[in-house]
C-alpha cells in the first residue's frame, strides 16, 4: 500500500476528515473520470463519485489493506456506477443503443441528458467515443473504463469485478470489438478529427 495512503487511511479511520480530504483530492479526478466515462454525464458522475467516496469513508473499517486504497476505491466506484446502471435500466426499457446519436444527425434522447456545454461539444470525437461507451453493456463499459481509462491491470480488474483472468481477457476483447464496430460507423468523423489518411473499403 502506498505509505502516504496508509497513513491517510489510518487517520481517516479515526474520524480525521482532513486526512480523508487528502485522499479525496488525490483520487477525485480518477474517480470522477471513471464515473463520467461510465455514466456519460456530469450529473450522474458528480453524484456517484461523491457516493463512492462516502461509501469508502463509511467502509474504511473494513478496508484491510489487501489491495491498494486506489484499487479498493475504484472497486467501490465501479460498484456504485454499476448499481446505478442497473437501477436506471429498470426504468429505461429502451436499449441504450437506441439512445445513441445517429451518424450525421441529432438524437433528442441522447442529447436529453447533456448539459448545454455538452451539447455544444457533441460533434467532437471524444463525445462520440463517450456515447458509444455508453452504448456498451454495463460489464463491457466497466471493463473498458477500468482497463483503457484507468489503466488497471487484468489482475486488478479481475479482483475488482470478482471474475477470473480469463473472463477479463475475453470480456475485454468483446468490449473492444463492439466499441470498434460502433465507432467505425463514424469513420469520416474520426478521420477528420484525427486527420488520418482515408482508408479504402
Amino acid at each position: 500500500m502506498n505509505p502516504d495512503d496508509d497513513q491517510l487511511v489510518k487517520r481517516s479511520r479515526s474520524g480525521d476528515l482532513d486526512a480523508f480530504d487528502e485522499l479525496v483530492r488525490k483520487y477525485q479526478s480518477k474517480v470522477y473520470t471513471v464515473a463520467y466515462r461510465f455514466m456519460g454525464n456530469h450529473a450522474d458522475a458528480g453524484d456517484l463519485s461523491q457516493d463512492a467516496f462516502i461509501r469508502a469513508y463509511q467502509a474504511l473499517s473494513s478496508f484491510r489493506g489487501d489491495s491498494s486504497f486506489a484499487t479498493w476505491l475504484y472497486r467501490i466506484a465501479a460498484n456504485v456506477c454499476r448499481d446505478e446502471i442497473r437501477k436506471q435500466s429498470r426504468y429505461k426499457k429502451v436499449s441504450l443503443d437506441e439512445l445513441l446519436v445517429q451518424p450525421g444527425g441529432n438524437n433528442s434522447l441522447a442529447a436529453a441528458d447533456l448539459t448545454p456545454e455538452e451539447s455544444l461539444e457533441r460533434v467532437e470525437l471524444k463525445d462520440v467515443v463517450q456515447r458509444h461507451l455508453n452504448a456498451l453493456s454495463a460489464e463491457h463499459r466497466l471493463i473498458l473504463v477500468m482497463r483503457d481509462i484507468q489503466g488497471m491491470s487484468y489482475d486488478e480488474i479481475a479482483t475488482s469485478l470478482d471474475c477470473t483472468l480469463g473472463t477479463v481477457k475475453s470480456r475485454l476483447n468483446r468490449a473492444r470489438q463492439t466499441l470498434k464496430k460502433k465507432i467505425l460507423e463514424h469513420r469520416e468523423l474520426i478521420e477528420d478529427e484525427l486527420r488520418l489518411p482515408g482508408k479504402e473499403g
Binding site: S29, Y32, L144, I149
Partner: peptide, 10 residues
C-alpha cells in the same frame, strides 16, 4: 481513442 480521452475534472 478511449485511452486518449481526457481526464474529467470534477
Amino acid at each position: 481513442l478511449v485511452r486518449n480521452l481526457p481526464m474529467v475534472e470534477p
